[in-house]
Amino acid sequence: MYRIGELAGMCEVKADTLRFYEKHGLLAPSMRTDSGYRMYTEQDANRLRFILRAKEVGFTLSEITELLSIELNKSEWACADVKGMVDDKLAQVEERIAQLNVFKTTLQALSRACCGGPESAEHCSILEALESSLTEVRCEEPGCEHGKQ
């Protein structure tokens, strides 16, 4: 049996993390001592490791809850159900990467558009671009083509 600090240390998380997971129904101590200390078993430690690994690959708390329910009742679920969850998460990640690439491209264009000099920001091309409804950015950096990104 492990006390909360021991289990937290063993899994390299803070005790508050275990309390948080307990509050959200992901993890519960197997028992409490007469003085109220949370006590965890090896099975609880395995559950915590499962939660942490699922979190590391991007699953949300509600998704982890669903995965845990599958883990507890494996015989009632098909492997395809679990794969479906992973494929859905993968599609979300790919969509987010695409969004981040758009952000990156736009930020690069904004950065290239600004001279970055010590002058007043009254005519800053970045601010002008953000204030404008135009999709093109006026470029002030040498080498930019015709004042566009």
Rank of each mutant, 00 (worst) to 15 (best):
G5R: 00
G116D: 08
R32H: 09
K148D: 13
S30F: 00
L127N: 02
A113P: 01
D87F: 04
R38H: 09
S111M: 08
G147F: 03
A113G: 15
D16M: 00
S133Q: 11
F20R: 03
P142N: 04
E128F: 00
K83R: 12
L26M: 08
E95P: 00
P118Y: 05
I51E: 10
G25A: 02
V13E: 12
I126R: 00
M10C: 04
L67F: 04
I97R: 05
I70G: 12
R32I: 06
A109K: 09
Y37F: 11
S120H: 02
L72I: 01
F103I: 14
L90P: 01
R96G: 02
K14M: 06
R19W: 02
E136Q: 11
H24V: 09
V137L: 01
Y21Q: 09
G117L: 04
A80R: 10
I97T: 10
L61H: 03
L107A: 14
N46T: 06
L18R: 03
I4L: 02
R112M: 04
G5K: 00
L72A: 15
T65Y: 01
Q108W: 01
L127E: 10
A113M: 01
G58T: 11
A121N: 08
V86K: 02
M31H: 06
L7K: 02
T41E: 12
F103A: 15
E141K: 10
T33Q: 09
F50W: 04
E76Y: 01
I126W: 04
Q149S: 10
E136M: 00
K23T: 06
F50Y: 11
E122F: 00
V13A: 13
E42C: 01
K89S: 06
E119G: 07
N101G: 08
Q92P: 02
E128T: 09
D81Q: 07
H24W: 00
I64D: 08
A45L: 05
L130M: 11
S125G: 02
I4V: 14
H24P: 01
E66Q: 15
G58K: 06
A8L: 05
D81M: 09
T60D: 14
R49Q: 12
S111Y: 04
K23N: 13
M85Y: 05
K14Q: 11
V57L: 10
G9R: 01
K74Q: 14
L107N: 07
F103R: 02
V137Y: 02
T106C: 05
R38L: 02
C114L: 06
L67G: 09
E141R: 12
R49A: 07
A91S: 13
N73E: 14
H123P: 01
I4P: 12
P118R: 08
L134V: 12
M85N: 03
Y21R: 03
K83H: 08
K104I: 10
T33S: 13
H146D: 15
A80H: 12
G84A: 12
V102G: 08
W77N: 15
S120G: 11
S69Q: 14
D88A: 15
M1I: 12
A54V: 10
Y21G: 06
E66W: 03
A45Y: 01
E95L: 13
E122I: 09
S69E: 15
V102D: 14
E56Q: 15
M10K: 09
S132Q: 04
T65H: 07
T106Q: 03
T41G: 03
A98I: 04
T17M: 11
L18Q: 06
F20T: 12
